[in-house]
């Protein structure tokens, strides 16, 4: 069992939709746990990261903690994959890049509709936000990009099985068209 490849996953500034899509492989998850050992991932609730063969990153980089976690994944994982639009491009969260950070925070915590106790939170335990949201390849080197919002379960499955079997990674057209 110790020989099985170790896989870790994390959601940075994402919506967990890519993780939900991973779960959409349905009963194939039983095959997957035979093929790999899960390390840190929301699926196992393991919070610390060991040395891994494969790291799947959902979400872009929006705050200091995202940077720290992403760097640790890069250090620990032999292969790192940007999964989904936010990791690849910044995605929906990057829409805030059109505005200043202070403007965004004021809208969310002070001026927005239905705000109670207005005031921008400030606590050392809350990670500081970056001025802009960035795709993950702007912070660390990335080996594969798996686009989609989210990538379909079948696309994730195709990637995982090809990668684990050491085959070249290629998708049937229906798995990578978005219209």
């Amino acid at each position: 069992m110790a020989d099985k490849p170790r896989v870790a996953t994390v959601s940075l500034c994402g919506c967990f939709g890519c993780h939900m899509s991973l779960l959409d492989i349905d009963e194939r998850i039983l095959q997957l746990v035979d093929l790999v050992t899960f390390d840190r991932t929301p699926l196992t609730d393991i919070k610390t990261l060991g040395d891994c063969d494969l790291g799947l990153i959902e979400g872009g980089v929006a705050n200091a903690e995202n940077v720290e976690v992403l760097r640790e994944f890069r250090r620990r994982c032999k292969t790192l994959v940007a999964v989904g639009a936010c990791a690849v491009n910044g995605g929906i969260p990057a829409m805030r890049n059109q505005f200043g950070l202070a403007e965004c925070l004021r809208e969310s915590y002070c001026d927005g509709i239905g705000v109670h106790n207005p005031g921008i939170p400030s606590d050392p335990e809350i990670p500081l936000l970056l001025n802009q949201v960035h795709p993950i390849h702007e912070v660390v080197a990335i080996d594969y990009f798996l686009p989609g919002c989210p990538p379909s379960a079948d696309a994730i499955w195709t990637f995982l099985t090809a990668f684990l079997e050491g085959r070249p990674i290629a998708f049937p057209y229906l798995q990578i068209h978005f219209d």
Binding site: N63, G100, L105, S122, L128, L130, N131
Partner: peptide
């Protein structure tokens, strides 16, 4: 890239 947030949080 943390400059604005540092300013807002006063940290």
């Amino acid at each position: 890239a943390l400059s604005e947030a540092r300013g807002i949080a006063g940290r």
